[in-house]
Amino acid sequence: MTEPIPSAAETSPAAPVLTLEDVHVRYGGSHILQDVSFDVPATGVTALLGRNGVGKTTTLRSIIGLAPRSGRILLEGNEIQDRTTARIVRGGIGYVPEDREVFGGLTVDENLRLVDPDRGVDAPVVARLFPDLVSRRGQRAGTLSGGEQQMVALARVLLRDNVLLLVDEPTKGLAPKLVTEVADVLAEVARSTPILLVEQNLPLVRRIADRVVVLDAGAVVHRGAAADLVADADLTRELLGVSMRREGAA
């Protein structure tokens, strides 16, 4: 198992960590992703936005190999579209799915030991970012609150050395205080590892994302700096169907 460690010498700042070229996803009769192409730069947070059902989750799942796809997907210049999910993940992509999907019958420690058999909850990164989990090591993950489950889902991914994280709606259904906590963790992680983030919460996008990719009906319709989109209320409404101000008030 090779664990690619990105170094400044190998990866020039301009080179994207992930590239999607003409990615299509067809399921049954429906064509869910149609010719999706975009780059994820090797630093900071790239937010993947769009209305409900435009294919954001499917895009993440196609990258990780959980959705049947065609087209080219490059991780640090290497084609990964023919690899199995487990190999893609071991190759350095961490995936935090929508709805957390922690193993409810397993303890917090066991959830983490799946990824890091030797250290589990004792890994330094857990103590640094998720101190609450250490005290709950023996508790079944299914009995944790939504916010704590999200922490488990993030922690178990961070136990690996990743070159990219895919994070799908990490604040969905969380109380405002927890949203802030999750955002803090993501911002901290993004200082060392690039993140491709699917998120509905625009204030949070404004806070931590550097750039945005907007999908509509299974295709990319906008690419640009996060600040530009957020500053343009008309564009936001046109692309996302929401008013920034109303979201901001929520």
């Binding site: 067809r26 399921y27 989750t57 499917t58 799942r61 959980l66 959705a67 049947p68 929508e98 709805d99």
Partner: peptide, 14 residues
């Protein structure tokens, strides 16, 4: 509960 996209993994198109 299964997520709405779960069917993607459970049923291959072919």
């Amino acid at each position: 509960m299964t997520s709405p996209t779960d069917h993607l993994t459970h049923t291959h198109p072919s």
